[in-house]
Structures are given as C-alpha cells and as structure tokens.
C-alpha cells in the first residue's frame, strides 16, 4: 500500500466530531474519490492527509511505510488542488506552475524545462505568459492542476476541483480531468459531492456519511451491491419499495412479489430504471406526475411504497396523470438492505 491511514479522527475544539476513527489504504497509482454530502467529513479527511489539519491523538499516516503523521504540509510532498484554486494572483501562469519547483531549489534551466513539459501536458501553451486574472474558470482549474503536479508530488489531492465551474463546463472538464490524471499515472485522492464526477474519475469510491466511510469499492460494486441504505440512496438514488416484508414475500397495497429466500428484518429498495410500466405486470400503481426528459419520461407512481416511486419510461408516449398502470419489477433488481435508522 502506498498510502495507509489508521485510526485517523478529527474532533474540533468545540467538541464537534468531524471525522470518526477512519482506516483507509490506497495503492500506488490508484485514484480514489471521497464522496458524500456536505458535512460528511470528506474535506476534513483530505485536509488531514495534506497536513492542513492535525488529526486527533492516535492517528497514524504512512506513506510507503514511512510515518508522516507529524510532518508539516511543506514537507509532505503532496500536490493540492483547492476548490477555489488558490492561484497566486501576483504571478503569471508560468510563475504559478514553477513555484513548487523553485521551492525545491532546482536550477533555473531545469525549472524551465519541467514547467514547459507540464504546460504542454495540460495544453496551456497559449496562456503561459498570462496573469491569473486573465484566465477563464476552466483554464484556472487546469493551471491549478498543473501547479500541483509540476513538483512531482507523491500524492495528488483534489478538493472539489470542478465545483467552482458552471454546469455546462463541468461535464466536459470532468472527462478531461479523468484523462489527465490517468496520463499523470499519479496516486490521487479526489473529494466531491457529485456521484457522477466520482464515478467518472475514480478507480475506487469511498462513500462517506456522518464522519465515517460508509462503504468503499469500485463504482460498479457501489452501484450494484450497496451495503447500506445510505449508500443505496446516495449512489443511483435507490427508493424504498413495498409496504412490508413477510419472510420471503414483499407486500404492496395491491399484490406482492416473491423474494429469494427469507428476508425478514430487511428493507427493499429499487432504482427508477428497474421499475417497468407493463400492463401485464403483477402490480398496480397510480400515476402522480409525468416529466419528459428527452430520452425518457420520469414518472412518479403511488401505491408501490409509502413514498412515490419513480419509473424511467422509454417510449414515444406516456400514461396520463391519474391513470392506473401495471408495473413489473424483476425481483433480482431489488436491493435487500439492513434497516438503517440514521439515513435521511
């Protein structure tokens, strides 16, 4: 393991527990995303790794076996991309990118060579001599990335690097960022509250909630086999399904579905893409709302659970509000999860 954190926690002076004791191992070259709603402790964890926050007593941070828990930021050899980018307004693009190399006291020719290299890699050639305030948001983001990467850090940390951009640009830059990080071949940790970003960029995603890692795994595993209600709801917006479970039968207001084996004490969840409108289906539901989204309709249905259940319906026409429709659900697509009292 390249980076290994054990028993890392953070309690603020006023007693707030921002991060519960956390264990995290990251392999060489791996890109890990810390994903969660605001206030879940993801930024705190990132800042502890960066050395910008001091963890509680008992924490241990290892890099290739070397303990760096007590190292100050400037000795950690980590590159950091800040949410606001924190580019130095008193320096040009070149000055910003070269700053870390200057701090390493490299000879001038070497600095110039490496700055040119990174500028080419990040496609910043046309902007190299510009002052920072003459750049667009997307360009700033790339300069921030280039600056963090230029000194060849052991670890690249990114704190919500796309959230300062407007929505249209975000999608495009997300792919670009994923591509750049892969081409760097660097170990990276990347904080976001956006599951699409996390899935697009990361090899593994750590979903965080209430100061702890709820589940960590590849995007596929998190999506297909969430271990808790929180993860299922947060990744892919799973919805509770049915009224109650009686051994191996899931009961609805009208009808029931057979489940594989006894599922007593668990809760059933379903995702919108697995709810099919089918007049021959075994279940009945009432349409409450219909939203046209181009590729499909998003239809809210009453009668499948205490709350409305959404269905994605790909067809040329949709039922009307108030209609009663038949619904088919493949029992294999139902996620059976232990009850989670905390989750919102």
């Amino acid at each position: 393991m390249t980076l290994s954190l054990t028993n890392t926690a953070k309690t603020y002076a006023d007693g707030t527990r921002a991060l519960k004791p956390t264990k995290l191992d990251i392999a060489q070259g791996e890109i890990v995303s810390l994903l969660g709603p605001s206030g879940c402790g993801k930024s705190t964890l990132l800042r502890i790794i960066a050395g910008l926050e001091t963890p509680d007593e008992g924490a241990k941070l290892l890099f290739d076996g070397e303990d760096f828990t007590r190292f100050p930021v400037e000795k950690r050899k980590v590159g950091m991309v800040f949410q606001s980018y924190a580019l130095f307004p008193n320096m040009s693009v070149r000055g910003n990118i070269g700053y870390g190399l200057k701090m390493q006291k490299l000879p001038k020719t070497e600095i110039n060579r490496r700055v040119d290299e990174v500028i080419t890699l990040c496609q910043l050639e046309p902007y190299a001599a510009r002052p920072i305030n003459a750049l667009s948001g997307g360009q700033r983001q790339r300069v921030a990335l280039a600056r963090a990467f230029a000194p060849r850090p052991r670890l690249l940390l990114l704190d919500e690097p796309l959230s300062a951009l407007d929505a249209a640009l975000r999608g495009q830059l997300c792919d670009e960022l994923a591509q750049l990080l892969r081409s760097f071949g660097i170990t990276a940790i990347f904080v976001t509250h956006d599951q699409d970003e996390a899935m697009a960029i990361a090899d593994r995603v750590a979903v965080m909630s209430h100061g702890e890692i709820a589940q960590i795994g590849t995007p596929e595993v998190l999506y297909r086999a969430p271990q808790s209600e929180f993860v299922a709801r947060f990744i892919g917006a799973a919805m509770p399904l049915g009224r109650h479970i009686d051994d191996n039968t899931l009961h609805f207001e009208t009808g029931s579905l057979n489940l594989a084996g006894s599922q007593a004490g668990k809760k059933a969840f379903i995702r919108a893409e697995d709810v099919r409108l089918d007049d021959t289906g075994p279940l009945r539901a009432k349409v409450i709302s219909v939203t046209f989204l181009g590729t499909h309709y998003r239809i809210a249905l009453a009668g499948l659970a205490p709350d409305p259940v959404f269905a994605l319906h790909s067809a040329l026409s949709a039922p009307k509000v108030g209609d009663t429709v038949g619904v088919a659900i493949n029992p294999a697509a139902i996620l059976m999860l232990p009850s989670d009292k905390k989750a919102a």
Partner: peptide, 12 residues
Amino acid sequence: TLEEGAASLGAP
C-alpha cells in the same frame, strides 16, 4: 487558502 497553496508546494 493562498498560503495553504504555497505550503502544499513546499514553501516554508
């Protein structure tokens, strides 16, 4: 944040 940025780049 500017100072944190400089610190992460190795500036004492």
